[in-house]
Amino acid sequence: MGLEHFGRVLVIAPHPDDEILGCGGTMARLTGAGHEVHVAIVTLGREPAFPAEGVARVQDEARRAHALIGVHATHRLDLPAAALDTVAAAELNGALINLVNDVNPDTLLIPFLGDVHQDHQLTFLASMVAARPRSPKAPARILAYETLSETNWYAAPTTPAFVPNVFIDIQSTLERKLEAFSLFETQVKAFPDERSLLTIEALARLRGSAVFLRAAEAFMAIRMIER
């Protein structure tokens, strides 16, 4: 079965590269099949914590990675990176509500609530507010993706554990995912760091073999509306 039911897709990423780590292979499959895939980057690094030159470089890396994947549009909310806890909930929620209303996605791919980074947790919560089923236009499906170096570094089972129940075959797009992440030259690390290309491939192989596929990305189904 294909992914036709995904329709228009919005991937919400707290920071540039989360979307490639979490669901780059799925995004590539979707764009290859003609789906309109949007990416929202919630935060932007600000001085003095994030030098402007480095921020500009990461933005350029993201542009090139998204072009390779075939992203329809990248939306930047430019809220403060590593400081979403300083943003009023109404402001964060409002930014994502406006975005979801503008894009009108059928499917949302969002970070996992149990990620160690607070930006990820707050992005999840705001995404759920933005996706409240208050009209027929509400996203029909919401899936949470896993992000290496974030999803398994908290304190499960004391904190929410990522227990995948959706697996998407990315055998045909794994190499493109790896190539896209390699464009984030500032973020790629040497193995055994979790942000190494070897680890990204190993996770895809592990998730795939769990369901007798050669490579997969894993998700948790948060809400599915069958219309």
Rank of each mutant, 00 (worst) to 15 (best):
E19M: 09
E19Q: 11
I20Y: 03
L21H: 09
L21R: 10
G22A: 09
G22S: 07
C23H: 08
C23Q: 03
G24I: 06
T26G: 04
T26H: 07
T26K: 07
M27T: 05
A28Y: 00
R29T: 09
R29D: 00
R29Q: 10
T31F: 04
G32D: 02
A33Q: 12
A33M: 13
G34Q: 04
E36A: 14
E36G: 06
E36H: 11
E36D: 15
H38P: 01
V39I: 14
V39Q: 04
I41S: 03
I41T: 10
I41W: 04
V42D: 03
T43S: 12
L44M: 06
G45I: 09
E47W: 00
E47Q: 06
E47Y: 00
P48S: 02
P48C: 01
A49M: 12
A49W: 07
A49K: 02
F50T: 00
P51G: 01
P51L: 11
A52P: 05
A52R: 15
A52S: 11
G54K: 12
G54M: 08
G54W: 14
G54P: 00
G54D: 11
V55L: 10
A56Q: 15
A56I: 12
R57P: 00
R57M: 07
R57I: 10
V58R: 15
Q59S: 08
Q59Y: 14
D60V: 09
A62T: 12
R63G: 10
R64Q: 15
H66E: 15
H66A: 12
A67V: 01
L68T: 03
L68S: 04
I69G: 01
I69T: 07
I69N: 02
G70I: 02
G70P: 06
V71E: 05
V71N: 05
T74H: 05
H75D: 05
H75E: 02
H75G: 08
R76M: 01
L77F: 04
L77Y: 02
D78Y: 03
L79I: 09
L79K: 06
L79S: 03
L79G: 03
A81Q: 09
A81W: 02
A81F: 05
A81Y: 03
A82C: 12
A83D: 14
A83I: 07
L84Y: 07
D85T: 12
A88L: 09
A89T: 10
A90N: 07
L92D: 09
G94F: 14
G94T: 05
A95Y: 13
L96H: 03
N98E: 15
D102E: 15
V103F: 01
N104V: 02
N104R: 14
P105E: 05
P105G: 06
P105S: 06
P105Y: 01
D106Y: 00
L108A: 05
L109K: 04
I110K: 01
P111I: 13
P111R: 13
L113Y: 13
G114Y: 12
D115E: 10
V116K: 05
D119F: 10
D119P: 08
H120W: 15
T123Q: 10
F124M: 09
L125A: 14
A126Y: 11
S127Y: 07
S127M: 04
S127V: 09
V129P: 03
A130S: 08
A130N: 07
R132K: 15
P133Q: 13
P133K: 11
R134S: 05
R134E: 12
S135P: 05
P136C: 04
P136S: 10
K137T: 11
